[in-house]
Every structure is written in structure tokens, then in C-alpha cells.
Amino acid sequence: MFRNLELVEADSNRSGLSVGALWFCALLIAVTCGALIAAIVLSPKAPPELAALIASALPRSGVENPVTAVLLNFRSYDTLLEIAVLLIVAVAMVPGRTRVSGSRAATVNTDHNKDPMLTDLVRWLVPIAVLVSGSLLWSGAYAPGGAFQAGAVLASACIAVVLAQNHSLQWQSHRARGSLVIGLMVFVAVAIACVAITGTLLQYPGAHAASYILFIEIALTLSIAATLLLLFTCLSTTSATVERSMDGAKTGHPA
């Protein structure tokens, strides 16, 4: 089933399996699915002890939103590794260094290829989006919100700018590379600093937990937004964004 990976052929809606094999797979999957459903329906669910534990520990965590507390305090190690996953994908996809790589992260396009409607929309939309992103980040402490949501909104604002062909991005500049890694850097730095202050990795000092969490979340927002923007521009196959933003795609990458 995985031997031939068809990519662009139009009639490749089926893999190379025969009808009999497909029916056999379908039957096998249906039986497994039925068995799993039966196992779930017949077995009792565990009592909510963990929810009670979290409710009692929440006041000491520095935030009021339980999901933020779990993400950035109780299970902060998971979030740290997840930011590492984002960095892996960013490193794999970032365009290679070429001769024309400059030091500015984004340069304004001076040609007249800009889309006039999008440009005007962007002029109104981006400041509002940045404010929304900031408020999502701040409200993560007491309501649904936080670094991921804020980063996604910020990334979509930047994507709108890129789509309007207002700017071209240099991913090999220092600021761009710095923005990709700053989330992980700040998180690891705070983790190690916690070892010096409280003796345990990622254990925030009791009174200041809220400020530590906010500091980490700000860096995470920047990194998540930068990574999502990079993913979008590298995957975008429309010619305009390819030429402007995938600098070095034809010459340096895949090297």
C-alpha cells in the first residue's frame, strides 16, 4: 500500500490493491472498530480523581485557567518538547542560505504587483489582529486562550501581509532565525534558571509563577507565529509567493 506514492496523477484515487484485498481490509478494520467500541461500552470509566487533584492544586499554579495551568505548569515538559517538534519542522523546511540573503527579515516590495484590495484590507486588519493576539495571550491566565491561540492569530495576520505581496521575507536573516528559536530558547533558559532558584527543573518559584508563565508564553507566541508563517510560505505553491518568499528554493533547497 505504501510502495507507490503517487503525487500528481489525476486518476490515482486508488492505491494498487485489488478489490478483494480492499474488502478484506475493510472487513478487518470494521471488526476491530466494533471490538473497540464494545470494549469501551462495556468497561467502566475511571473516576475523576485527577480533575479533583487539579482543582485543589490550581490556586498554587499561578493561573486561574486549568488548561493553561496544565499546559504551562503541571505538564510543562510536554509543552517544551512540543516546541522542539515545531523547531524540527522549521529547521527542515527553512530555505537555505543563498548569495542574496540579506540581513533584514522583511523588505517592502516596491514594484506595482501588489493586490490593491488585499493591501488595503491588510492595513486595517493587521493592527486589529495583533491586538487580538495580545489579548488572547493575556487572557490565557483566566479564560481559554494562551500562547498557541495568540500565535495562530498573529501568524494569520502575517500570512495576510504575505498574501498581499506587500513584503518579501528573508528567513536566513538573524532576526528571522532568532524568532524561530526564541520560544525554545526562553523555555529552556527558564527551566534551567528554575534549577538554580528552586532546585527542580521547570518548578517556578511559588509567588512568581504567574510572571514566569507569562514570560514563557510571550516567547512561545513569537515562535509559534514565526513557525506557522514559515510553514505557510514554504508550502505555498502560487508563483508570486514562491518567488518572493521561498528565497533560495530553486538554488539551495533541497540542497
Binding site: L5, L7, P48, L50, A51, A52, I54, P66, V67, A69, V70, L71, R75, D78, T79, E82, V85, L86, I88, V89, A92, M93, F148, L231, C234, L235, T237
Partner: peptide
């Protein structure tokens, strides 16, 4: 009574899924 841990796990899972999908798409392109 709502258990917040699965919510946090799903948030992490979504980010990981996005990363994996993007990597596969980049390879395909």
C-alpha cells in the same frame, strides 16, 4: 466536573499533527 488534562493533551496533539502534516506536504512538494 470537567477534567482539563485531556484538553491540554489534545492541544499538544493538534500542534504535533500540524507539524507532521506540514513535513509530509513539504516532502511531497
Amino acid at each position: 466536573t470537567v477534567d482539563p488534562i485531556p484538553h491540554a493533551l489534545v492541544l499538544t496533539g493538534i500542534v504535533v499533527a500540524v507539524a507532521g502534516t506540514c513535513l509530509c506536504l513539504w516532502l511531497a512538494i
